[in-house]
Nucleic acid binder design. Structure first.
Length: 470
DNA sequence: TGAAATGTTGGGGCG
DNA sequence: ACGCCCCAACATTTC
């Protein structure tokens, strides 16, 4: 018998429950169907499309090495699956679950439709340590605070061991695949140069990155994670988003080599990822509206000039601009800096966090609806377990603390490279002869700060206090 | 996973 | 030697 394995965001052969289940039953037809309009309002951003292209390329190659062909199609998913069932004589369709609201709705529909047609339809958990509907507090309610959520996860049975790559048999029916290029996922203007020099998509590379990180860096993660000028984070987020590696693989790799206590700070980050997915599942409206309803009337500023300056990395605050340019150039930003630029957008510029979420969505290779939503609602203070309204990052202090030698700023804001450490996080305070010696004229090579942080902070406190008080 | 404002303490300069 | 002041360093409170 033949089973269609519908790939969506699980581009790996290892620890892939749908694939393994299908492989034990007979021939398989691995399929990817490109249907961007079915993703709803949060369809693939530009950077995500780039990764998706290369991810599919890699997956197709891994199948080819084993004598199988990844079938690529585009168009209405249900119709495509029905057509493939006809073409191949398949009697089953298996896939791994996704948790975005629009996707859950679509998949439920597809499942019931195919079941009515007597197809064996099964979905599996490949992308989370625990399913959202299985985790709740004593009142049977979803957790809304991270720490009790995390403590609770640690009382549950350990996540399942990752599955090996199954022995696979191709189906006897040959079916046509569209050309990967026909999906037009790559940019027509060549803005992806920086991205390709920094990233190698694909499950094989994911595993190399994991092994490299797990060797030693994972042990000093709690210190190094805050240093954008150091290489101390895992860089696994895009691989995780596209399912080129699974959280179970990361979890067990860490614990196989190290003690729990030594890797807890890193595993806790997988906990945040779980938390984000659980929140998205239980509060499906949060990508577009604040979880805390009192924030709906927050007096956000419409300021397209300031938004643009933020997006382009021209705010005049070096750590903010460095982060935004790293994002634009490489499709990724260090998490410490994500918090700093997020706080700056929301609290210094008083621009709606949704604008930030949208920009990140388009530019991040790891753009993930659950994580992105959690992050932005956290920084804006309107989400679950969010930063309190008065927590406002000082971009100068953050720069001095976490980029003390200014290396991160020098890398991404090269026009400031010649400034001494003392002034590199606050060039507008540098004596004019220092600026001159460094070849910097504010307003020419590098902008004046678009807001005064001290004033902006006071204004933010007033605005946020108003929301809070009512 | 914050930072500023305010409070407290103690050493040192100085009359 | 003493009281007084200044202020850095640290602690606590507040936003």
């Amino acid at each position: 018998m033949t089973t269609i394995v519908w790939f969506r965001q699980d581009f790996r052969l290892e620890d892939n429950p749908a694939l393994t289940a299908a492989a034990t039953k007979g021939g398989i037809v691995p399929v990817f169907i490109y249907a961007p309009y079915e993703e709803g309002e949060w369809s693939y951003g530009g950077a995500s499309k780039w990764w998706l292209h290369h991810s599919l390329e890699n997956l197709a190659e891994e199948f080819l090495e084993r004598g199988l062909q990844l079938i690529i199609r585009q168009g209405d998913t249900l119709k495509t699956l029905q057509s493939l069932i006809k073409e191949t004589g398949a009697t089953a369709v298996y896939w791994n679950r996704r948790y975005e609201p629009a996707i859950l709705e679509r998949d439920t529909h597809i499942k019931s439709y195919l079941k009515d047609a007597e197809i064996d339809v099964q979905s599996f958990n490949a992308n989370l340590l625990y399913e959202p509907w299985t985790v709740h507090n004593k009142q049977k309610k979803p957790f809304q605070v991270f720490t009790p959520f995390w403590k609770h996860l640690l009382t549950l049975p350990a996540p399942a061991e990752p599955l090996h790559v199954p022995k696979m048999q191709k189906s006897s029916q040959r079916v046509e695949s569209e050309n990967l290029e026909s999906l037009a996922l790559l940019p027509t203007i060549h803005w992806d140069k920086g991205i390709s020099t920094h990233w190698k998509p694909g499950a094989k590379h994911a595993k190399e990155v994991l092994m490299g990180f797990n060797k030693a860096a994972v042990l000093v993660y709690s210190e190094e994670r805050n240093r954008p000028d150091h290489p101390g984070v895992s860089h696994l987020s895009p691989y995780l988003h596209f399912g080129e590696i699974s959280p179970r693989m990361i979890w067990h790799a860490a614990l196989q080599k190290h003690s729990f206590i030594d890797v807890e700070p890193y595993l806790r980050q997988l906990g945040w990822r779980e938390f984000a997915h659980h929140l998205l599942y239980h509060f499906p409206k949060t990508p577009n509206s604040p979880l805390r309803v009192d924030f709906k009337k927050f007096p956000w500023m419409k300021n397209s000039a300031a938004l643009k300056a933020w997006q382009k990395g021209k705010t005049g605050y070096p750590i903010v601009d460095a982060g935004m340019r790293q994002l634009w150039t490489t499709g990724w930003m260090h998490n410490r800096v994500r918090m700093v630029v997020g706080s700056f957008l929301v609290k210094d510029l008083l621009i709606n966090w949704i604008e930030g979420a949208r920009w990140f969505w388009d530019t991040l290779l790891d753009a993930d609806l659950a994580n992105n939503t959690l992050g932005w609602q956290w920084v804006a203070g309107c989400g679950a377990d969010a930063a309190p309204y008065f927590r406002i990052f000082n971009p100068i202090t953050q720069g001095e603390k976490f980029d003390p030698e200014g290396e991160y700023v020098r890398q991404w804001v090269p026009e400031l490279a010649a400034l001494p450490n003392e002034w590199i996080q606050k060039p507008w305070e540098a004596p004019s002869e220092v600026l001159r010696a460094a070849g910097v004229t504010l307003g020419r090579e590098y902008p004046h700060p678009i807001v005064d942080h001290k004033t902006a902070r006071t204004k933010a406190l007033e605005a946020f206090q108003e929301v809070r008080g009512s």
